[in-house]
């Protein structure tokens, strides 16, 4: 009893001590808001202080970076509705394109930073139960009658759209594949799905915590994080024969930084993501770094994998209209009689 009281006091005391100086600094410094998608919480929790140190060394000023996380589409909508994001770091280019179309971001945003403005890449993998009891090796195994597949709703989750496209890419590349056969594959695949969570994290929770399903279609980084969080005795990662190169892009929100006068800091923040230091943090969080040397250091984490890109689908505008917009393939799959 007295022990726990002591512990509590110590914790409260320690926290109060930590909070006090932080509170004092906040008043004078620049504040940025980074509006991001769900799985990047842990990443930016480490990136932000690192950038803070670099920024202070360079300018002598402190900087606070606030984080907002939700589904990628929801976040784009929030920025559009007036959430004062200095930078957006989203799951797919289509969501930043939506901001560009409405004048919040310059149309040429994707050319402003290296590598299509995506400082890291990722891909889509399978997370299965330890020992892979259902013997899932590749996409066709997902159609086995006793296999339940967990993936979030592509209408609300950026990651789910990558999942969908990866599966579609595989189906399109089978010998003798036609548009109809690919559609049939997708239809059958989605009928193996018992729950459509609204976000990638919700889907991972359903799979790991609730014990739902046999395979989780997930970001590579999410799969590794889940393995790290819940242990390799809970789940293991399976790399399919073909996947998709996911490029989660970043951009400064021009309208906001021009109004707030934070363009320099916001740009520096995004450029920092391409530095060796940030790329190492990125790799540590299981995203695929762009820097070849960092990639080389962590090579054993990232098995070589045949990947298509969004360009193979003709870019996001076409993919969006074809698969995810109202009346697209996803809607048709769930509409009876079509």
């Amino acid at each position: 009893m007295s022990h726990s009281t002591l512990t509590r006091r110590t914790i409260i005391g320690a926290t109060a001590g930590l909070l006090a100086p932080a509170g004092r600094v906040v008043a004078a410094e620049t504040t940025l808001l980074n509006v991001s998608y769900d799985p990047t919480r842990e990443l930016y929790r480490e990136i932000n202080p690192a950038f803070g140190t670099v920024w202070r060394e360079k300018t002598g000023q402190g900087i606070t970076i606030n984080q907002s996380h939700d589904g990628s589409g929801a976040q784009a909508r929030a920025v559009l509705d007036g959430l004062q994001a200095d930078v957006v770091t989203l799951a797919l280019a289509a969501d930043i394109d939506a901001l560009a179309r409405r004048g919040l971001v310059a149309m040429d945003w994707q050319q402003r930073l290296p590598d299509n403005s995506a400082p890291y890449t990722s891909t889509i993998v399978f997370l299965v139960r330890a020992g892979n009891p259902k013997g899932v090796r590749d996409w066709p195994d997902l159609l086995k009658p006793d296999v339940a597949v967990i993936t979030p709703n592509p209408k609300t989750s950026g990651g789910a759209r990558w999942n969908f496209l990866a599966a579609q890419a595989w189906a399109e590349r089978q010998p003798g594949a036609t548009e109809a056969s690919a559609e049939d594959f997708m239809r059958r695949l989605l009928h193996q799905v018992p729950v459509l969570d609204t976000g990638a994290r919700g889907a991972t929770n359903s799979f790991v915590q609730r014990g739902l399903g046999d395979v989780l279609l997930a970001w590579e980084n999410e799969a590794w994080l889940a393995r790290q969080e819940f242990g390799s005795d809970a789940c293991q990662i399976v790399y399919p024969s073909l996947s998709i190169l996911a490029e989660p892009p970043v951009s400064v929100v021009d309208r906001v930084v021009d109004k707030k006068g934070t363009r320099a800091a916001a740009t520096a923040y995004l450029e920092f993501l391409y530095t060796r230091q940030a790329q190492t943090i990125i790799a540590r969080h299981y995203y695929r770094p762009r820097d070849p040397e960092v990639m080389g250091q962590y090579a054993e984490r990232y098995p070589a994998l045949k990947m298509v890109t969004i360009q193979d689908f003709g870019g996001w505008d076409i993919a969006q209209a074809r698969y995810f917009a109202d009346g697209g393939l996803f809607d048709r799959i769930f509409t009876p009689g079509q």
Binding site: G71, G73, A74, A76, R77, L80, A98, N153, K155, T156, V193, P194, V195, L196, D197, T198, A325, D326, D331, F334, T335, P336
Partner: peptide, 22 residues
């Protein structure tokens, strides 16, 4: 389960439409 046509409630569809900027 939020499955379209099966367990997707109308308020969720409102949220989805909002996210599609509709």
């Amino acid at each position: 389960g939020n499955m379209p046509m099966i367990s997707e409630i109308a308020p969720l569809l409102i949220v989805i439409r909002l996210e599609q900027l509709d």
